Simulated scan of single mutants.
Amino acid sequence: MTRESWEQRLRGLEDSAVASVSGATDLESLEAVRVDLLGRKGRLTGLLKGLKDLTIDDRKTLGPQANRLRDEVARLIEDRRTSLERAAIDAELASVSLDASLPPRDLGLGRRHPITKTIEDMAGILSRLGFAWADGPRVESDRYNFTALNIPEDHSARDMQDTFYLENGQLLRTHTSPVQIRYLEKHAPPVRIMAPGRVFRHEAEDAGHAAVFHQIEGLYVDRGVTMADLKNTLSVFMKGLFGAQTKIRMRPSYFPFTEPSAEVDVQCLLCKGDGCSACKQSGWMEMLGSGVVNPAVLKGVGLDTEIWSGFAFGVGVERIAMLRLGIPDIRMFYENDLRFLRQVGA
């Protein structure tokens, strides 16, 4: 191939390429043009391969011209492809009756589960009182769940009727109190923590009981902590949950890990203390257990009980949620009835 014939073919391709690209009426015909010009056996590709038959000086002069034409053809093809794709979309939209002013469909956004919302509310109140969030494992050892909390070996809570034991000798925690022990082992007082979490009890389920439920434990250890500090904290906590007019009372009780211990009642939210069927005519509703941390528990984690003292309390989340929302049956929280969850979810 001579230089003159090569240049003639290049000019011919330059004239026909623009016409071929602009004449493509759809993507299929445009692809055929691309293959004809730039494919492995395309005309422009073949012309570039023909440079090897020319002298070095001719290749230096004519090669850049062919490369510029190749780049220009590629740009024209891409522009034409974009134009054809846009035209195809416009044609499809034109064939569909679409009213852009119509309101969108309701996406049916989810809500937070009432138990989740109740935990957030309870934790929010306690955090404002200075309690930090602490967490621990759900699968526990006998030591953390019982022994370290001063629960004797003959205590009924250790029976298989009340506790889920695993084959490896461990168990599903029956309360979140083990978190307190784990925290005190790693952190020197003063400490002020709350331990929300799921707990497990081997018991029959009914309107007021569940085998799996949630608790929030509170623990405060410092110098000179007394029962008065506990009462003041719980009074603020209950008022934050049920309103500023909420009244509480404390009744002597027994828990192995606190001494003295107290059950805490809230004045009935329905009858305001006058007596009704919900509070069994007493005017009060049992709410939680609490007390001053037993010195044996503090000694077990290496604390000097002549210096440090504290209080602890534990409350069921589901019970609080049932009272705040007026839910008569604890099982409703876990039946996954969307009508119920839409009504009480947040």
Rank of each mutant, 00 (worst) to 15 (best):
A24V: 11
A132H: 13
S97A: 13
D58P: 07
I193L: 07
A188I: 01
M322H: 04
R198W: 03
A204S: 15
G275H: 00
F313I: 04
L129A: 14
A24N: 06
I56C: 02
M332V: 10
R201S: 13
R192L: 05
D329P: 02
L172I: 04
R112G: 12
R112H: 10
G218L: 10
P178N: 03
D36H: 12
E217H: 08
S127W: 12
G124C: 14
N232Y: 14
D90I: 14
W6M: 10
T233R: 08
L107D: 04
F333H: 05
V292G: 01
R143F: 15
E205A: 12
L51G: 12
A87T: 12
M122D: 06
P137T: 12
R128I: 14
G289K: 04
Y220P: 05
L230G: 08
I151E: 06
L51E: 13
S5I: 11
E153W: 12
W308I: 05
F340L: 13
I77D: 09
L51R: 08
V96G: 01
A87S: 14
D159M: 11
G289R: 00
Y165K: 09
K239F: 10
D79S: 15
V266W: 00
A321Q: 09
L107E: 04
F131R: 10
W6H: 04
R59E: 03
E78C: 12
L234G: 05
I115G: 11
R81G: 13
P178L: 01
R128V: 14
H214V: 07
F257D: 05
L109M: 14
D337C: 08
